[in-house]
Design a protein around this nucleic acid. Structure first.
Lengths: 147, 147
DNA sequence: AAAGATTGAAGGTTCAATCTTA
DNA sequence: TAAGATTGAACCTTCAATCTTT
């Protein structure tokens, strides 16, 4: 068939609106309050959770599911703003969070948590949570290899 | 509080992964098969659904929830590729889909429908649909004015 | 050679400033 | 004047090509 059933169309629409809305609201709250973009926040929290505040650029990219070049471009901008520093490490590069970077995360974390609660988790009735979570998990699961 | 409960964190994580995954898969299928980006597809289908294949640029932006400038930049690129044409209309501008634009939509529509089914609706058990849809709708609902 | 990183180009998005026409 | 549209700058993302170190 070349188009969606009413029921599928309806679900698709609700999904798209919800996904766009929730994402935009959370990003907006965080960036408005702290000046950090969503990618900024992701990189900083990921590096900050390492005990040494340090991570191989390669592993950072892999753990965030980013292309090498995306991370490279982004770190260039973040380094210019003093949030992280790069230094050569063997074959690759090591990324370290700076004091300014830690301060930014400390400021952003509670704002982010509040935004997630306000725009997502608080809006989901307790009774619906388990099933909702279950559906989300299956949507995000890796595709089965085609063979 | 400045961080999320385990339950909230878990739900947030599942949400984010699912939202990113579904979006990426659908966009990927469509763009790989037709060369249309997600915004391209959105603009074309919106204009194509008008009986005259024509829409005020202003109304197009409003109905897609886009900023004026975003649409202006995007139409510039689409016009260069021959998918739409702009012409002055009173105070504003009228956007019309071209034959090439219609052909592109015709090609993309079934691909898009199949992708939505494959990556979203087919993965949701019938029994979960009503409640899932209900939750999505409340997430996407407009914020209550804060007065 | 292979892995890791960078670069430039092109598309996409937002913001603020500007221009145009009713 | 006000609504509608455009522009340029800055940031973000992807892709392909290149460079560097082991």
């Amino acid at each position: 068939v070349d188009s969606l059933s009413n029921s599928d169309m309806d679900l698709w629409h609700a999904w798209r609106v919800a996904a766009d809305t929730v994402r935009a609201r959370i990003i907006d709250d965080v960036s408005r309050a702290t000046g950090l973009s969503d990618p900024d926040y992701g990189v900083l929290t990921r590096v900050a959770e390492e005990s040494r505040g340090t991570l191989r650029q390669n592993e950072l990219a892999a753990s965030m599911n980013w292309h090498r070049s995306r991370l490279s471009h982004h770190l260039t901008r973040m380094e210019q703003r003093g949030l992280v520093v790069r230094s050569p490490a063997g074959a690759g590069v090591e990324v370290a969070i700076t004091a300014a970077g830690r301060a930014a995360v400390a400021e952003a974390r509670p704002v982010h948590a509040a935004a997630v609660r306000k725009h997502l988790t608080d809006l989901i009735p307790d009774g619906s949570r388990p099933e909702f979570r279950q559906v989300l998990t299956s949507l995000g699961a890796p595709e089965l290899p085609t063979t």
